[in-house]
Design a protein around this nucleic acid. Structure first.
Lengths: 201, 201
DNA sequence: CCAGATATGTAGTGTTCGCTACAGATGTGG
DNA sequence: CCACATCTGTAGCGAACACTACATATCTGG
């Protein structure tokens, strides 16, 4: 028994194109026609490879969070909580206004609200954002244990805060805010982390 | 010439119901069927009164921002920049988790991204958020002039920052974060404004 | 009570959506 | 070269969408 005709497109390349469409238009705003055109394939190929529209989104999210995870590892590798926050927020400002990608963050742009029948999409995005927050929290827990953060500080609250600012910056970026505006936000936001640092700066 | 049959529903009451549907499902996620059912009317009445779906959204946004404006006036009436930020952010935490409303903020939930043909919706929401930011900025400009904020502080950046945190909290609320979690974020966020206050607290 | 004007409920319209049946193309194992 | 398996393109499926035609009902002005 043979192995069948091989597929004529590269799945990861196609996924990158799909990711960009979801990123720009959101889950519900992206149509199969737009996706297939961007991916350079026809609907049957899409469904054979990814199951359905939601499966394609999840695959795109996997790819997005994988790429982002590499960067996040660098972020939490910073020596102090303050520098973690600074790397994170200034990096967010740069990345979310990088003309190579759609503005904002796929985990926000993808869909905060969805119609009946797609309630799992916002949940899926929220789960991925929460993973990011967890990674930050773990890093801040360590910072507190190391005496880098004040003994009175709340690492979980700090992580939630940095995560919230990141999300807010993503919305601003998608609404047209430029890199400079986001850098200003990052600059102010870091000061709240400084206030929780043992050396106060 | 007569004045015709009077409408049998109250426009503002119906608008409140429509606002809640948009708030919960977003612009694209909300269907005319859901809207008319919530409003207790039939499609022709909706179109006669509001023009089309986008007109209904704008009317709902007008009502939302009007109600919110009353509260914002109280916020900026606080005596110091720090207290303005505190009232704003703790109030956001309370309001966005108020069980009387859908979670989050209509200006965020309404739609960050939209499909082709509805690009004006995200723009409309962004414009309303910008108005809020302008109001904050004006207040912080005054605070700086009054010596309440440091001479080196940037009122526009501070306003952008508070606005960004508010938006981030809105996304968190819609993803299931409870009041306490948002209050923690608010509590941390205020410290950045404190750092820009002349008395440092 | 009548004529004009506006609102209402029923029952659709055309379009677009996500998705797929099907036939032909292209590969592998024997 | 043949049976089989998988992919590809065309063409279109049923459902849901925003929106509306139309007949009927309810008002005002005369």
């Amino acid at each position: 028994m043979g192995m069948g005709r091989p597929r004529e497109f590269d799945a990861e390349t196609a996924l990158d194109q799909a990711m960009e469409v979801f990123w720009r238009h959101g889950y519900e705003g992206a149509t199969i026609a737009q996706l297939t055109e961007a991916m350079g394939i026809n609907p049957p190929s899409l469904y054979a490879c990814f199951g359905n529209k939601e499966g394609l989104l999840k695959a795109a999210l996997d790819r997005y969070t994988k790429l982002r995870g590499v960067w996040m590892d660098e972020v939490v590798a910073a020596p102090t909580a303050r520098e973690v926050a600074e790397r994170m927020l200034t990096g967010i400002a740069d990345r979310q206004t990088d003309p190579a990608n759609p503005p904002g963050c796929l985990l926000v742009q993808g869909g905060i609200a969805c119609g009946t029948g797609s309630e799992s999409v916002p949940f899926e995005l929220a789960t991925r954002r929460a993973q990011n927050e967890d990674q930050l929290r773990d890093r801040f827990v360590r910072a507190k244990a190391e005496g880098d953060l004040k003994p009175t500080s709340d690492p979980a609250a700090l992580a939630r805060y940095v995560s919230a600012v990141s999300v807010g910056m993503g919305v601003m970026a998608s609404s047209g805010s430029d890199r400079e505006a986001l850098q200003q936000v990052a600059s102010v936001a870091v000061q709240a982390v400084e206030a929780q640092s043992a050396d106060g700066k």
